[in-house]
Design a protein around this nucleic acid. Structure first.
Lengths: 227, 227
DNA sequence: GTCTATATGGGGATAGAC
DNA sequence: GTCTATCCCCATATAGAC
């Protein structure tokens, strides 16, 4: 094992890595190509050689993470539906299939601190029009397929309510990946609560799923809630 | 009544209005002062005369909305605590006090389409360092006071879990204000579901509170959930 | 208070050598 | 595939007239 897993990235890969990090930290439109190439140790012309323009670089940065993430989500959903054999899978399992791959994708890498987390949140806000439609194209199929299955798990909710609570759920997920200072300031203060700081992804996912599953189980507009 | 309620804003007000709209639509760092003054019908030098710099303009744009919003939140929380007289208020009421003023603040204005909605989401992501601390300063007190009361409503959750679910809740709230195309695409398709499109804020709030209350009531790490 | 004019620097993109 | 050099536009900020 002389090289761990392609330790010497090509210029193209280094550009994508640097762009991803800077887009997340500084915002997409605010990050200049010059800053990216400086970080990647590359030349300005290399960006246009490899990607054609800044806009296409953005598209590649996003697709590189989102494509495998959504593929994994749908793969897990397929498996759940196959196991349920006609019936409805368990709501918690469906939500884990939706949220698990996202948390893994947004997880800080082993060496660098974080990478894709803030960018996920930006995706839903930044970008005047073009980027919004790009994101839409990436997520529409996944979202609709999950909505159908979640709807079968939640017969107490109308289709409109399902879609709305899916939106709430994505919001909770997106913010779960953030470490906003306001949420840390007094949560962990003295040394009284000695919890292991580096908790595993599975536990993070468990707590997020518990919350959003509670949200879906709550009563809808018509009548009763948790079965 | 020759003038309805200051129909002819001063330059300062027009600059704030234009900046707020453009910051929300295009992002803060991506919006140039030139774009703002063009929208406001003002001059470039006017920005520096009234605010000193772009950074201070940003601060004013945010404070103008956030200050009264958080004041209203705390006023309602005070009232709930006074009515509870020592005991814990009802969880749903506390959450309505937290989320109601935010939905009202983010509501589209009567003439313009939307205004402050996307900006609220951006607040939690955009801004390298300085803006984050500014936002922290605005929200820290409100968040901590609500966390304490919510904690009394949810004895089944640890302080850490309360803070984490507050974060989920803010995320759900932030995304509730967004109309991401992916979430509309098939929710309202044909003319079958004839719901009144312009639903009132109270109903929006009801549905959001139902979801997040369900999230808080779900079981925590130790044991039981909904009482 | 509001304007014009300008100083100074950074932005994306491209041509063309190697 | 990667570099240097360059075109042209836009950014914030300020000076100083009115």
């Amino acid at each position: 094992m002389s090289h761990s897993e392609s330790p010497e990235h090509g210029t193209r890969e280094r550009l994508l890595d640097a762009a991803e990090r800077l887009f997340a930290e500084e915002g997409i439109r605010s990050t200049s190509l010059r800053r990216i190439i400086r970080e990647a140790g590359a030349n300005l012309a290399a960006v246009h050689y490899h990607f054609g323009s800044k806009a296409e670089l953005v598209v590649e940065v996003l697709a590189r993470r989102i494509r495998p993430m959504n593929a994994e989500r749908l793969r897990r959903l397929d498996r759940l539906e196959a196991e349920a054999a006609g019936g409805a899978p368990r709501l918690g399992d469906v939500l884990r299939a939706l949220l698990g791959p996202a948390l893994v994708t947004m997880r800080p890498s082993r060496k660098g601190p974080s990478r894709f987390r803030h960018l996920m949140v930006r995706l839903h806000t930044e970008g005047g029009d073009d980027l919004r439609t790009l994101v839409h194209a990436h997520f529409a199929e996944t979202l609709q397929r999950f909505s159908v299955v979640v709807g079968r798990c939640c017969p107490h909710l109308s289709r409109r309510e399902i879609m709305e609570r899916m939106k709430f759920t994505i919001g909770a997920m997106a913010f779960s990946a953030m470490d906003h200072p306001a949420f840390r300031s007094f949560g962990e203060e003295s040394g009284s609560d000695t919890e292991p700081v580096g908790r595993s992804d599975e536990l993070d996912l468990d707590r997020l799923v518990a919350y959003v599953e509670g949200g879906f189980r709550a009563a809808g507009e018509k009548g009763e809630g948790s079965p």
